[in-house]
């Protein structure tokens, strides 16, 4: 028997989107921003292996994220309908996002292919204007992909914790931060003498300070929001999600890397274990952030008239 007062709401944690979608949101943002950063270094005539490796890393991350997204469907074999349905609804953010994902993957592949040994025969391999155009298109759709992951869940008005303008901003900042961390890790394997590693580590430090501020303000404002939003904030700060959020996102994902980067990284020459550890921690924190936000999505369902 349910004992309730009228005009109250059912508060129910959304049970439909879980780990796979969280991994997709993480990898989609990471891949998009890893490419955008690589493109920035390409424009600055930066380290070659960073540009090529980062572009491929971004492409593969988004591709794996998209595969997770497809696996989450009730009918994975019908995934093509998201672009080819006879009644395609272009105002749906899943349709818009799928177009952005596909465009991003195509443009980044066209951008990076002529830089690889096996694809030198491509007609635009010698034409820098064409490569630059593909790069810019990949950059713009990459910004779109990283913004879209937050907009997708941000428009759900009956989950007030998600329905906040700051959420896509947090996801974009986190995407940039995890994108930089993934590039740093990659460069430790490819070329650990590159000075870009330090530029990226320092940028990542400032990005994470900004992220910490935006997340704090977001939680503060949402705790004054509708009952379900206040309940979500309560759950991630003091409830069953607190170990993941306070321990995983705030401590491992933000506080420790910020301290490591500004305490050790910027003061020393050369790559140290600190560089690698802080980058790994940033990636763990970024993935947990998506998971926590999805799990903390509490539906506010009217229960009576």
């Amino acid at each position: 028997m349910l004992v309730l007062e009228p005009q109250h709401y059912y508060l129910l944690q959304q049970p439909w989107w879980g780990m796979l979608i969280a991994l997709y949101l993480f990898l989609g943002g990471l891949g998009a921003m890893a490419f955008c950063t690589s493109f920035y270094f390409w424009r600055r005539k930066g380290n070659g292996s960073l540009v090529v490796g980062g572009s491929i890393l971004g492409l593969i991350a988004v591709l794996i994220g998209t595969i997770f997204l497809i696996l989450d469907l009730g009918h994975p074999e019908r995934f093509y309908l998201v672009l080819l349905s006879p009644k395609l609804n272009l105002s749906s953010w899943i349709a818009i996002g799928s177009i952005l994902l596909l465009a991003f993957m195509i443009f980044t592949a066209l951008f990076v292919a002529p830089m690889l040994r096996w694809f030198r025969w491509l007609p635009w391999a010698k034409n820098e204007t064409v490569i630059r155009t593909f790069g810019w298109l990949g950059f713009i759709t990459g910004i779109g992909v990283s913004a879209y992951t937050g907009i997708l869940i941000g428009i759900v008005f009956n989950i007030p914790f998600w329905n906040a303008p700051a959420l896509p901003v947090i996801f974009m900042i986190s995407a940039f931060s995890t994108g930089l961390a993934s590039l740093i890790l990659m460069m430790l394997f490819l070329d650990r003498e590159a000075h870009e590693i330090h530029v990226m580590a320092k940028t990542d430090g400032f990005t994470m300070i900004f992220e910490l501020i935006v997340i704090s303000i977001f939680l503060l404002i949402r705790s004054y929001g509708p009952v379900a939003a206040a309940e979500s904030v309560n759950t991630i700060l003091f409830g069953w999600l607190a170990p993941y959020f306070v321990g995983g996102v705030l401590l491992i994902g933000l506080a420790i890397p910020i301290m490591l980067i500004f305490g050790y990284e910027v003061k020393r020459q050369g790559v140290t274990a600190v560089t690698a550890i802080s980058a790994i921690f940033v990636l763990i924190g970024g993935a947990l952030l998506r998971y926590v936000v999805l799990e903390a999505g509490i539906l506010q369902i009217p229960c009576c008239v």
Partner: peptide, 10 residues
């Protein structure tokens, strides 16, 4: 033509 993305349920 439903792909089962569960967006409608959310």
């Amino acid at each position: 033509i439903c792909i089962g993305c569960k967006y409608c349920m959310v």
